[in-house]
Structure formats: C-alpha cells, structure tokens
C-alpha cells in the first residue's frame, strides 16, 4: 500500500511557450522555472495577459494552436511532459498526474449532460471504471467538497455557481493527481461562497497531500493558501519565493506595487495604489526589462539589458536593482 512519492512532484525548468500568430510571435511565457513538493501549494499572480493561463495550459499540454511549447522541460510526478504525443498526454498525463479547475464557473460544465455523467467521464475514459463503482468514487469526493448527492443527478443549469465550482473541484480530485491547477477558482462567485470554498480547499490540501497551483490576479486570496508565490509580469516570473517573505518584504518593484494595491481594512481610500500604464504587447515587448516603462525605480540599464535572476534572502528576483556583481 505504501506508495513512495518522489519528493519533488512538479519540476518546471526554463519553460518557454509562444504563440505564432499572423501578427507575429507572442512571447506569452519565457524561461519560467519553479518546483513544487507534495503538500505544497504555489500561487501564481499577475495582471491578465501576463502568461498565467499559458503556464497552466503548458503544464496540461493543452496549449491551443498557434501556440506551442518552444523549449524547457516539465516533470510531473516523474513524467516528462513536453515530449508526450497528444494521445499519450490524454492517457497518461491529464487528470491522472495533473488536473485543472477552469476559470469561469458559469459555463464550466456542458449544459446538456447531467452532473453525474460529466463527473464520471474521467473514470470511464481513463480508468475504465463505470456504473456503481464510478458513482461511489464520485460520491466520496462530493462528500469532501460538501455537496449533496442529490445534485449528482441534476443538470448544470439547476445548480448555483458555488455548487458547480465545488463539483468541478471534486471532479479534479477524482483520480488523485499529483498536482491540481486552480485557475481563478472563485472569481465568478460572491465573497461569502469564495471564503467557504477557500477554507475547504485548505482542508483538502492537508488531507490529500497533493500539490496545488493557484492562479489568480487577486493577491489577497493567495496570502492565505499558498506556501510559495510566483509573481508574473509580461511572460516572466519576476519574483519567486516563500509567500510569507514576499508579503512581508516584496523585492521586485512590480510586486511592491501589486501588494500596495491590495485594499486593507482601516485604510484610507486615498492611499490605495495603482500601477500607471498597461502591460506591454507581447508580440513586441520592450527592450531590456519588460517592466521598465512602468517602473518608478528604473534606471538606464533597465531599458538596455534584460535582468538576470538574483537570489535575495532565498527569494529569486528578476531585477537589476539586486545585481550585486556590478
């Protein structure tokens, strides 16, 4: 019964994914590296279009054409992902090694199939488990997300957004994958439901001991649930380290701005910060550091040279400010 897992369940190295559109090459994700151990969770944060979703789809080997993984490697639970054929990815990788809860709770389920039908699909197509046995497994996980069995027989349109999201989460856990990606799992829900689901997720994480990847633009959520934090900007991971360290002392100017923009209780509304300007077009990103046009601390070198990754107190920062060598 004892299944010895590799300690490192997710190892992403120099992952680069580009979209080759008619308007040019969109450099959606460049040179991203991070690791995850069992029971750990990583939060990936950044503005929309920063490459968060591309990262998720790369991990699942589901980058939509005209996009493709250009270079780098991804190992999930000991399986090298980048070299798999489409059919291998379907049969070996998806849902068994890594599953995903998609963004947007409203049309996350096919409207014409019952909840049960859709939940049992991964069991049926990947494990060949059907009928009552499949149903029992589903019920077990419905229990875990606090969903009434009765909903198993309903159609998606008869469910509330929160119920749907819980069911989708239960479905993602069905095959006990090493890693679960949650892409904006709660953005479409109201605050109370959001808080409850986040609490449930915390409990589940402890119970199941798998890795979780939270993708969101809302840093305040990540503070509670993630051990590691990766801040993304324009296709780069600009800061990567323990969540606690980063919250306490953000290093990258972008992270600083991002954290300052989180509204807190008892805070004067005037002082809420925002970042002027907009993220760059990734077909033609700015020379040097991609953030420099919006950065208040930028200096000459920032517009000329691409910054290296610097280790500052255990946190990796991609910024010229921390270059001790010169």
């Amino acid at each position: 019964m004892i299944h010895i897992k590799e300690k490192l369940i997710l190892d992403v190295n120099n992952l680069t994914t580009h979209y080759f559109t008619s308007k040019g090459e969109v450099k959606a994700l460049d040179d991203a590296s991070f690791q995850l151990e069992g029971g750990q969770s990583i939060g990936i944060a950044g503005e929309s279009g920063c490459g968060k979703s591309t990262m998720a789809f790369s991990l699942l080997r589901m980058v939509q054409p005209p996009g493709r993984i250009v270079s780098g490697s991804i190992r999930v639970g000991g399986l090298e992902v980048t070299g798999l054929s489409e059919e291998e990815a379907r049969k070996k990788l998806r849902w068994q090694k890594i599953s995903m809860v998609f963004q947007g709770a409203m049309d996350i389920m096919t409207p014409v199939y019952s909840v049960g039908h859709q939940m049992m699909e991964p069991l049926r197509y990947l494990k060949d488990i059907k009928g009552d046995r499949a149903k029992d497994i589903c019920f077990k996980y419905l229990d875990m997300v606090n969903i009434d069995y009765e909903l198993f027989y309903r159609y998606p349109h008869e469910l509330s957004g929160g119920q749907k999201q819980r069911i989708v989460i239960a479905t993602a856990l069905l095959l006990e994958p090493d890693v679960v990606i949650l892409d904006e799992p709660t953005t479409a829900l109201d605050v109370v439901v959001e808080a409850r689901i986040m609490n449930d997720l915390k409990v589940l994480k402890k119970k199941l001991n798998n890795g979780m990847i939270f993708i969101t633009h809302d840093l305040s959520i990540l503070a509670e649930i993630s051990d590691i934090l990766a801040i993304m900007y324009a296709g780069w991971i600009v800061e990567l380290g323990s969540a606690l360290d980063i919250y306490k002392e953000p290093k990258h100017p972008y992270t600083q701005k991002l954290i300052a923009a989180i509204p807190r209780l008892h805070m004067d509304i005037d002082r809420l910060e925002y970042i002027p300007g907009a993220p760059p077009e990734l077909t033609n990103p700015p020379k040097g550091c991609r953030f420099h046009p919006r950065c208040e601390q930028a200096f000459d070198r920032c517009s000329q040279e691409e910054p290296d990754e610097h280790d500052v107190d255990g946190v990796k920062v991609k910024c010229h400010l921390y270059d001790r060598s010169g």
Partner: peptide, 23 residues
Amino acid sequence: DYIMAARAKGVPERKVIYGHTLK
C-alpha cells in the same frame, strides 16, 4: 470552456465532438 474542460478530463476527441459539442 466546458469543451476545454472535457478535453482536459481525458475525454477522447471523438466523444468531445459528437458528444459534448454536437449535443
């Protein structure tokens, strides 16, 4: 989105087209 979700769940492409999509 649910088509993407179905593909991610490991539903074979034939079932995605003639099942989820067509239905």
